[in-house]
């Protein structure tokens, strides 16, 4: 019953409202002059998109999105903004002179997108509405189903991702440290 309700009726209006909020916040990220405002609008956009994820039966990814983006990345962004903010932002022109370039890319992206949208026959209704929360034929919930797939079928990519995070951490430490030495 839940899956039918999500596809029709009130959920359609809810999706449109969430999508418009997410897009509006995304536009605000790009046009806001102050990077602190940009970061907060980015956070709002992520939260709206997380709501759309949850509407699409991706509860785990929605929760991860909120935890990682709101809890991790956004704090990182705000710290860096506070570290570099004061002297640089004032008097800086917001936009650089690449409008022509950006407009040139519009048809390059839009044409193939519209072509695919017009010609491709895309899947509409989910063949098995409970597939996103099932393990071996039993309904166990989305988080458990995702973790089964992640640790059983995608164990190697999972480990590669953890090594990637380790490399990123070392890289961030090295990048931050070298410039400190030069200041001394």
């Amino acid at each position: 019953m839940g899956s039918n309700l999500l596809l029709t009726g009130g959920a359609g209006g809810l999706f449109v409202a969430l999508a418009l909020l997410a897009l509006g916040c995304a536009v605000a990220v790009v046009v806001a002059k102050n990077p602190v405002h940009s970061a907060l609008f980015l956070l709002a956009s992520f939260l709206w998109v997380a709501c759309i994820f949850i509407l699409q039966q991706a509860e785990f990814v929605g929760a991860v999105q909120i935890l990682v983006y709101a809890g991790g990345i956004m704090v990182l962004f705000l710290f860096v903004i506070m570290l570099v903010h004061q002297r640089t932002v004032r008097g800086l022109v917001t936009f650089q002179n690449q409008w022509d370039f950006a407009l040139l890319f519009l048809p390059v992206f839009l044409a193939p997108f519209l072509y695919v949208l017009g010609t491709e026959k895309l899947p509409e209704v989910a063949s098995n509405p409970d597939a996103l929360r099932m393990v071996d034929g039993r309904i166990v919930g989305n988080t458990k189903a995702v973790s089964w797939l992640l640790y059983r079928d995608y164990l190697l990519p999972f480990e590669v991702a953890s090594i990637f995070l380790l490399v990123a951490m070392i890289g961030a430490v090295v990048l931050g440290k070298r410039s400190l030495e030069k200041m001394d």
């Binding site: 990077p35 860096v80 800086l92 022109v93 650089q96």
Partner: peptide
């Protein structure tokens, strides 16, 4: 493409 600020 358009923003100047590296953070944005």
């Amino acid at each position: 493409l358009v923003r100047r600020n590296f953070l944005t």
